[in-house]
Amino acid sequence: MIASVLRDPTAETTQLKRNRLAPPASLDGKVVALMDIGKMRGDEFIDRLEQLFKMKNIATKRYKKPTNTRTAPTELVQKIVQETDVVVIALSDCGSCTSCSTHDLNDLDHLGIPGVSILTEEFREAFNGQCEKIGFDGASIFTPHPMQNKTTQELHDFADGILEELLAKITQPV
């Protein structure tokens, strides 16, 4: 429901959404935060991502939110800001996960950590809507939905399937 309307003070020459931070040109010497949003089975997906990054000699650190139903605690956000350069947030396959993890992506971006959120296809609209509301042009990647009833191997296959797109979105296009 629309409670009120504010008027845009800008020249309206740009889109309403704030551009996300540009990611680094390369991941050499950088640390990628793998942020588990705390939803069931997301860890299996992230396990595979971690393996894939390792195979490419990209340094990673794992983090986990206490619950997918809230935004990340300030301490966790600050820890990621101190220790890493880029963030990958996974794996949102519900409404509250999507809303909260999109805020996490935005909050980290404000603090200098560009990133990508990985969600299931069903929540593409919810992600875009949340970005619209907070005025943030966040980056996202979508995997098949549902994922809760898949085997571990299938989840690993999802990770394999999005790897190239993920690497492209956490490094600047040449």
């Binding site: 504010l6 309403l16 907070i134």
Partner: peptide
């Protein structure tokens, strides 16, 4: 152009965002 706020949006924070 208008920026629509919902019931739970904090208008001050929206200005920052």
């Amino acid at each position: 152009r208008g920026i629509e706020l919902g019931n739970w949006d904090d208008d001050m924070e929206i200005c920052y965002e």
